[in-house]
Computed example of a mutant assay.
Amino acid sequence: MLAFNSTASNWPTFSFIGIPGLEAAHIWISIPFCVLYIMALGGNALLLILVTAEQNLHEPQFYFLAVLALTDLGLSLSTMPSVLAVFWFDARHIGLDACLTQMFFIHTLSSVESGILVAMAFDRLVAICAPLNYTRILTHYTVACLSGAAVLRGTTLLAPLPFFLKTFPFCGTNILSHSYCYYPDMLNLACGDVSFSSAYGLVFVLCTFAVDVVFIIASYMKILGTIMNLETQDRNWKSLHTCACHLCTVLVFYLPLISLAVLHRYSRDASPVLYTTMSNAYLLMTPLLNPLVYSVKSRQIQAALRKRFWVQRVIAGE
Protein backbone atom coordinates (compact mmCIF):
# COMPACT_ATOMS: atom_id res chain seq x y z
CA MET A 1 0.00 0.00 0.00
CA LEU A 2 2.88 2.35 0.73
CA ALA A 3 5.47 3.52 -1.75
CA PHE A 4 8.40 4.90 0.16
CA ASN A 5 10.00 6.87 -2.65
CA SER A 6 8.34 9.41 -4.86
CA THR A 7 9.38 9.31 -8.49
CA ALA A 8 7.33 12.28 -9.67
CA SER A 9 9.32 15.48 -9.20
CA ASN A 10 6.18 17.66 -9.20
CA TRP A 11 4.78 15.89 -6.14
CA PRO A 12 6.21 16.46 -2.64
CA THR A 13 7.95 13.75 -0.69
CA PHE A 14 7.52 13.41 3.06
CA SER A 15 10.03 12.07 5.53
CA PHE A 16 9.24 9.90 8.55
CA ILE A 17 11.20 9.99 11.77
CA GLY A 18 12.09 7.04 13.93
CA ILE A 19 13.16 7.72 17.50
CA PRO A 20 15.28 10.90 17.46
CA GLY A 21 18.73 10.45 18.97
CA LEU A 22 18.53 6.66 18.84
CA GLU A 23 18.98 6.13 15.11
CA ALA A 24 21.97 3.85 15.65
CA ALA A 25 19.84 1.54 17.77
CA HIS A 26 16.86 1.38 15.42
CA ILE A 27 17.53 -2.21 14.40
CA TRP A 28 17.40 -3.30 18.06
CA ILE A 29 14.40 -1.11 18.83
CA SER A 30 12.59 -2.75 15.92
CA ILE A 31 12.60 -6.11 17.73
CA PRO A 32 10.07 -5.17 20.46
CA PHE A 33 8.03 -3.23 17.89
CA CYS A 34 7.93 -6.28 15.64
CA VAL A 35 6.93 -8.51 18.55
CA LEU A 36 4.16 -6.10 19.58
CA TYR A 37 2.80 -5.94 16.03
CA ILE A 38 2.80 -9.74 15.78
CA MET A 39 0.99 -9.97 19.11
CA ALA A 40 -1.58 -7.38 18.00
CA LEU A 41 -2.21 -9.13 14.67
CA GLY A 42 -2.32 -12.59 16.27
CA GLY A 43 -4.55 -11.53 19.16
CA ASN A 44 -7.15 -9.83 16.98
CA ALA A 45 -7.08 -12.64 14.43
CA LEU A 46 -7.68 -15.10 17.28
CA LEU A 47 -10.69 -13.10 18.48
CA LEU A 48 -12.14 -13.17 14.98
CA ILE A 49 -11.65 -16.94 14.76
CA LEU A 50 -13.21 -17.54 18.18
CA VAL A 51 -16.29 -15.42 17.50
CA THR A 52 -16.75 -17.07 14.11
CA ALA A 53 -16.21 -20.66 15.28
CA GLU A 54 -17.78 -20.75 18.74
CA GLN A 55 -21.58 -20.99 18.79
CA ASN A 56 -21.87 -19.59 22.32
CA LEU A 57 -20.16 -16.40 21.15
CA HIS A 58 -22.79 -15.71 18.50
CA GLU A 59 -24.25 -12.84 20.49
CA PRO A 60 -24.46 -9.09 19.69
CA GLN A 61 -21.69 -8.07 22.11
CA PHE A 62 -19.26 -10.53 20.52
CA TYR A 63 -20.30 -9.58 17.00
CA PHE A 64 -19.32 -6.02 17.90
CA LEU A 65 -16.10 -7.39 19.37
CA ALA A 66 -15.36 -9.12 16.04
CA VAL A 67 -15.86 -5.84 14.16
CA LEU A 68 -13.59 -4.13 16.71
CA ALA A 69 -10.92 -6.81 16.17
CA LEU A 70 -11.21 -6.41 12.39
CA THR A 71 -10.78 -2.64 12.76
CA ASP A 72 -7.72 -3.13 14.98
CA LEU A 73 -6.23 -5.46 12.37
CA GLY A 74 -6.69 -2.73 9.78
CA LEU A 75 -5.06 -0.13 12.03
CA SER A 76 -2.05 -2.36 12.65
CA LEU A 77 -1.63 -3.17 8.96
CA SER A 78 -1.96 0.53 8.06
CA THR A 79 0.96 1.64 10.23
CA MET A 80 3.17 -1.45 10.36
CA PRO A 81 4.81 -1.05 6.88
CA SER A 82 6.01 2.51 7.48
CA VAL A 83 7.04 1.99 11.12
CA LEU A 84 9.08 -1.16 10.47
CA ALA A 85 10.51 0.22 7.21
CA VAL A 86 12.03 3.11 9.15
CA PHE A 87 13.55 0.81 11.76
CA TRP A 88 14.70 -1.98 9.43
CA PHE A 89 15.72 -0.25 6.21
CA ASP A 90 15.93 3.44 7.18
CA ALA A 91 13.30 3.99 4.46
CA ARG A 92 12.03 7.37 5.55
CA HIS A 93 10.47 8.80 2.39
CA ILE A 94 6.92 8.51 1.12
CA GLY A 95 5.12 10.17 -1.77
CA LEU A 96 2.08 12.40 -1.37
CA ASP A 97 -0.51 9.95 -2.73
CA ALA A 98 0.77 7.06 -0.62
CA CYS A 99 0.86 9.30 2.46
CA LEU A 100 -2.71 10.49 1.86
CA THR A 101 -3.86 6.88 1.43
CA GLN A 102 -2.28 5.81 4.68
CA MET A 103 -3.69 8.87 6.46
CA PHE A 104 -7.20 8.12 5.16
CA PHE A 105 -7.16 4.53 6.41
CA ILE A 106 -5.70 5.46 9.81
CA HIS A 107 -8.29 8.16 10.53
CA THR A 108 -11.20 6.26 9.01
CA LEU A 109 -10.47 3.12 11.02
CA SER A 110 -10.03 5.21 14.18
CA SER A 111 -13.46 6.75 13.58
CA VAL A 112 -14.96 3.30 12.93
CA GLU A 113 -13.46 1.99 16.17
CA SER A 114 -14.95 4.89 18.10
CA GLY A 115 -18.35 4.17 16.54
CA ILE A 116 -18.13 0.48 17.44
CA LEU A 117 -17.33 1.42 21.04
CA VAL A 118 -20.55 3.44 21.06
CA ALA A 119 -22.46 0.44 19.68
CA MET A 120 -20.95 -1.73 22.41
CA ALA A 121 -22.03 0.83 25.02
CA PHE A 122 -25.56 0.67 23.60
CA ASP A 123 -25.41 -3.13 23.84
CA ARG A 124 -24.50 -2.94 27.53
CA LEU A 125 -27.17 -0.28 28.11
CA VAL A 126 -29.91 -2.50 26.70
CA ALA A 127 -28.57 -5.62 28.44
CA ILE A 128 -28.67 -3.99 31.90
CA CYS A 129 -31.51 -1.47 31.63
CA ALA A 130 -33.90 -3.47 29.44
CA PRO A 131 -32.84 -7.14 29.71
CA LEU A 132 -36.27 -8.51 28.83
CA ASN A 133 -36.19 -6.67 25.50
CA TYR A 134 -32.54 -7.41 24.73
CA THR A 135 -33.11 -10.08 22.06
CA ARG A 136 -35.87 -8.01 20.47
CA ILE A 137 -33.77 -4.83 20.24
CA LEU A 138 -30.29 -6.24 19.54
CA THR A 139 -31.08 -8.39 16.53
CA HIS A 140 -28.64 -9.38 13.77
CA TYR A 141 -30.14 -6.61 11.67
CA THR A 142 -29.53 -4.03 14.41
CA VAL A 143 -25.92 -5.17 14.83
CA ALA A 144 -25.35 -4.92 11.06
CA CYS A 145 -26.95 -1.46 10.91
CA LEU A 146 -24.93 -0.08 13.82
CA SER A 147 -21.67 -1.50 12.44
CA GLY A 148 -22.46 -0.26 8.93
CA ALA A 149 -23.32 3.20 10.27
CA ALA A 150 -19.94 3.42 12.01
CA VAL A 151 -18.14 2.51 8.77
CA LEU A 152 -20.27 4.86 6.63
CA ARG A 153 -19.81 7.77 9.04
CA GLY A 154 -16.04 7.39 9.15
CA THR A 155 -15.66 6.97 5.39
CA THR A 156 -17.97 9.88 4.52
CA LEU A 157 -16.50 12.39 6.95
CA LEU A 158 -12.89 11.45 6.14
CA ALA A 159 -13.23 11.40 2.36
CA PRO A 160 -12.69 15.19 1.89
CA LEU A 161 -9.47 15.36 3.95
CA PRO A 162 -7.07 13.92 1.31
CA PHE A 163 -8.54 16.27 -1.31
CA PHE A 164 -8.08 19.27 1.00
CA LEU A 165 -4.42 18.42 1.55
CA LYS A 166 -3.78 17.78 -2.13
CA THR A 167 -4.73 21.37 -2.98
CA PHE A 168 -1.96 22.83 -0.80
CA PRO A 169 1.67 23.31 -1.77
CA PHE A 170 4.27 21.85 0.59
CA CYS A 171 7.29 24.08 0.52
CA GLY A 172 9.32 23.07 3.58
CA THR A 173 11.42 20.11 4.61
CA ASN A 174 8.22 18.03 4.99
CA ILE A 175 9.49 16.07 7.97
CA LEU A 176 6.62 14.31 9.73
CA SER A 177 6.52 13.99 13.51
CA HIS A 178 5.60 10.30 13.41
CA SER A 179 6.43 7.10 11.58
CA TYR A 180 3.14 7.33 9.69
CA CYS A 181 0.97 10.01 8.04
CA TYR A 182 -1.31 11.89 10.43
CA TYR A 183 -3.68 14.66 9.30
CA PRO A 184 -2.77 17.42 11.82
CA ASP A 185 0.90 16.65 11.22
CA MET A 186 0.56 17.01 7.43
CA LEU A 187 -1.59 20.13 7.79
CA ASN A 188 1.17 21.81 9.82
CA LEU A 189 3.53 21.31 6.87
CA ALA A 190 1.19 22.83 4.26
CA CYS A 191 1.79 26.33 2.91
CA GLY A 192 -1.06 28.78 2.42
CA ASP A 193 -4.30 29.38 4.26
CA VAL A 194 -5.28 26.14 5.99
CA SER A 195 -7.94 27.66 8.25
CA PHE A 196 -10.86 25.92 6.49
CA SER A 197 -9.12 22.54 6.49
CA SER A 198 -8.20 22.98 10.13
CA ALA A 199 -11.79 23.92 10.98
CA TYR A 200 -13.11 20.89 9.10
CA GLY A 201 -10.74 18.67 11.05
CA LEU A 202 -12.09 20.14 14.28
CA VAL A 203 -15.68 19.58 13.10
CA PHE A 204 -14.80 15.97 12.28
CA VAL A 205 -13.42 15.43 15.79
CA LEU A 206 -16.51 17.00 17.36
CA CYS A 207 -18.92 14.99 15.17
CA THR A 208 -17.21 11.70 15.88
CA PHE A 209 -15.05 11.34 18.97
CA ALA A 210 -16.68 14.09 21.05
CA VAL A 211 -20.24 12.91 20.29
CA ASP A 212 -19.20 9.30 20.92
CA VAL A 213 -17.65 10.12 24.30
CA VAL A 214 -20.80 12.00 25.35
CA PHE A 215 -22.99 9.04 24.37
CA ILE A 216 -20.76 6.54 26.17
CA ILE A 217 -20.73 8.66 29.35
CA ALA A 218 -24.51 9.11 29.19
CA SER A 219 -24.97 5.35 28.69
CA TYR A 220 -22.89 4.50 31.74
CA MET A 221 -24.63 7.11 33.84
CA LYS A 222 -27.93 5.41 32.97
CA ILE A 223 -26.38 1.98 33.61
CA LEU A 224 -25.02 3.09 36.98
CA GLY A 225 -28.40 4.52 37.96
CA THR A 226 -30.09 1.24 37.04
CA ILE A 227 -27.54 -0.84 38.97
CA MET A 228 -27.92 1.30 42.08
CA ASN A 229 -31.64 0.53 42.06
CA LEU A 230 -31.10 -3.23 42.02
CA GLU A 231 -32.05 -5.03 45.20
CA THR A 232 -28.92 -7.01 46.07
CA GLN A 233 -25.26 -6.04 46.16
CA ASP A 234 -24.28 -9.28 44.39
CA ARG A 235 -26.36 -8.34 41.36
CA ASN A 236 -24.70 -4.92 41.37
CA TRP A 237 -21.21 -6.45 41.08
CA LYS A 238 -22.34 -8.99 38.49
CA SER A 239 -23.84 -6.26 36.32
CA LEU A 240 -20.76 -4.07 36.62
CA HIS A 241 -18.51 -6.98 35.66
CA THR A 242 -20.25 -7.29 32.29
CA CYS A 243 -19.17 -3.70 31.55
CA ALA A 244 -15.54 -4.09 32.68
CA CYS A 245 -14.17 -5.21 29.31
CA HIS A 246 -15.86 -2.39 27.45
CA LEU A 247 -14.78 0.26 29.96
CA CYS A 248 -11.15 -0.90 29.72
CA THR A 249 -11.34 -0.81 25.92
CA VAL A 250 -12.78 2.71 25.99
CA LEU A 251 -9.94 3.94 28.21
CA VAL A 252 -7.29 2.19 26.11
CA PHE A 253 -8.63 3.86 22.96
CA TYR A 254 -9.53 7.38 24.09
CA LEU A 255 -6.73 8.27 26.51
CA PRO A 256 -3.88 8.04 23.93
CA LEU A 257 -6.12 9.67 21.30
CA ILE A 258 -6.92 12.67 23.49
CA SER A 259 -3.31 12.96 24.67
CA LEU A 260 -1.97 12.99 21.10
CA ALA A 261 -4.57 15.56 19.98
CA VAL A 262 -3.71 17.86 22.90
CA LEU A 263 -0.01 17.41 22.19
CA HIS A 264 -0.44 18.47 18.56
CA ARG A 265 -2.61 21.47 19.35
CA TYR A 266 -0.93 22.94 22.43
CA SER A 267 2.63 21.63 22.59
CA ARG A 268 4.33 22.73 19.39
CA ASP A 269 7.73 22.80 21.12
CA ALA A 270 7.42 19.40 22.75
CA SER A 271 10.26 16.92 22.50
CA PRO A 272 10.23 14.78 19.30
CA VAL A 273 10.71 11.72 21.52
CA LEU A 274 7.44 12.58 23.27
CA TYR A 275 5.65 12.83 19.91
CA THR A 276 7.04 9.47 18.86
CA THR A 277 6.08 7.78 22.12
CA MET A 278 2.52 9.13 22.12
CA SER A 279 1.95 8.37 18.43
CA ASN A 280 3.03 4.75 18.82
CA ALA A 281 0.93 4.40 21.98
CA TYR A 282 -2.08 5.75 20.09
CA LEU A 283 -2.04 3.31 17.17
CA LEU A 284 -0.14 0.30 18.52
CA MET A 285 -1.30 -0.16 22.09
CA THR A 286 -5.02 -0.19 21.26
CA PRO A 287 -4.86 -3.19 18.86
CA LEU A 288 -2.44 -4.88 21.26
CA LEU A 289 -4.39 -4.43 24.50
CA ASN A 290 -7.96 -5.02 23.31
CA PRO A 291 -7.50 -8.80 22.81
CA LEU A 292 -5.65 -9.02 26.13
CA VAL A 293 -8.44 -7.18 27.96
CA TYR A 294 -11.12 -9.51 26.64
CA SER A 295 -8.97 -12.59 27.20
CA VAL A 296 -8.50 -11.63 30.86
CA LYS A 297 -11.89 -10.09 31.68
CA SER A 298 -14.44 -12.00 29.57
CA ARG A 299 -15.46 -15.38 30.96
CA GLN A 300 -16.98 -16.42 27.61
CA ILE A 301 -13.74 -15.68 25.75
CA GLN A 302 -11.74 -17.54 28.41
CA ALA A 303 -14.05 -20.57 28.06
CA ALA A 304 -13.68 -20.50 24.27
CA LEU A 305 -9.89 -20.32 24.57
CA ARG A 306 -9.78 -23.24 27.00
CA LYS A 307 -12.04 -25.29 24.74
CA ARG A 308 -9.86 -24.59 21.68
CA PHE A 309 -6.69 -25.36 23.61
CA TRP A 310 -8.15 -28.63 24.92
CA VAL A 311 -9.28 -29.67 21.42
CA GLN A 312 -5.81 -28.97 20.03
CA ARG A 313 -4.23 -31.08 22.79
CA VAL A 314 -6.62 -33.95 22.06
CA ILE A 315 -5.84 -33.78 18.35
CA ALA A 316 -2.12 -33.74 19.12
CA GLY A 317 -2.58 -36.84 21.29
CA GLU A 318 -1.36 -35.30 24.52
Rank of each mutant, 00 (worst) to 15 (best):
N10P: 03
T13S: 07
S15M: 05
P20Q: 07
L22Q: 04
I27K: 14
W28R: 06
S30W: 00
C34S: 15
M39F: 13
M39R: 04
G42I: 04
N44A: 04
L48T: 05
I49R: 14
L50P: 06
V51W: 02
T52D: 14
A53C: 13
L57S: 03
P60Q: 07
F62A: 13
Y63G: 08
F64E: 12
A66E: 04
A69L: 05
T71D: 09
D72F: 04
G74A: 04
L75R: 04
L75W: 02
S76K: 02
L77H: 10
T79H: 02
P81R: 11
A91Y: 02
R92I: 01
M103R: 00
H107S: 13
S110Y: 10
E113I: 00
S114P: 09
G115E: 01
P131C: 07
N133F: 14
T142S: 15
V143E: 05
V143P: 00
A144W: 11
S147C: 10
S147A: 15
R153S: 06
T155I: 12
K166C: 01
P169H: 10
P169M: 12
G172P: 13
H178I: 07
Y180Q: 03
Y183K: 05
N188I: 00
C191G: 06
D193E: 01
S195Q: 04
S195I: 10
S197K: 01
L202Q: 09
V203E: 07
V205E: 14
L206V: 14
T208N: 13
F209G: 04
V211C: 08
V213Y: 14
A218C: 12
K222G: 04
T226I: 03
L230M: 15
T232V: 15
R235N: 15
N236G: 05
K238S: 15
L240Q: 08
C243E: 10
C243A: 07
L251V: 14
F253M: 03
F253H: 08
S267K: 09
V273Q: 14
V273S: 09
T276R: 05
N280G: 00
L283S: 05
L284M: 14
L284I: 13
T286S: 08
P287V: 07
L288I: 01
N290T: 11
P291H: 02
P291L: 05
L292I: 13
L292T: 02
Y294V: 15
Y294K: 03
S295K: 03
V296N: 08
V296G: 08
R299Q: 12
R299L: 13
R306V: 09
R306E: 11
R308V: 00
R308M: 06
F309L: 14
R313F: 05
